[in-house]
């Protein structure tokens, strides 16, 4: 038997929050990137769940776009990570504090 939609929605809310937690607390830019991917995946799950329960394929198509965006963000994000790494051999956000106040 199919689980009701609220199960999926709550699961994706929890997953989203786990992603948020990862972004805020981890001190490694790459892990932060991965946590952002988690957040986007949680959103995808929401879309697909709604799509299934409303019987409209629209939500699934949107997920397709979200994946595109996620890929683009990952590519650019990693390029930025590399360019920062060139100056300081670090991935810790705390070491990126040239700009403050």
């Amino acid at each position: 038997m199919q689980a009701p939609i609220e199960y999926y929605l709550v699961l994706s809310a929890v997953l989203f929050a786990i992603g948020v937690a990862g972004v805020v607390i981890r001190r490694d830019v790459i892990v932060i990137l991965m946590s952002i991917e988690l957040m986007l995946n949680a959103v995808n799950l929401t879309f697909i769940a709604f799509s299934r329960f409303m019987g409209s394929v629209e939500g699934q198509v949107i997920v397709f776009f979200v994946m595109t965006v996620a890929a683009a963000e990952a590519v650019v994000g990693l390029a930025i990570v590399i360019s920062v790494f060139r100056f300081r051999q670090t991935l810790d956000p705390r070491d990126m504090q040239l700009l403050k106040w």
Binding site: V23, P93, L98, W101
Partner: peptide, 9 residues
């Protein structure tokens, strides 16, 4: 200003 710590997190 001190709020603006420079730490992105």
């Amino acid at each position: 200003r001190r709020l603006q710590s420079g730490n992105v997190q």
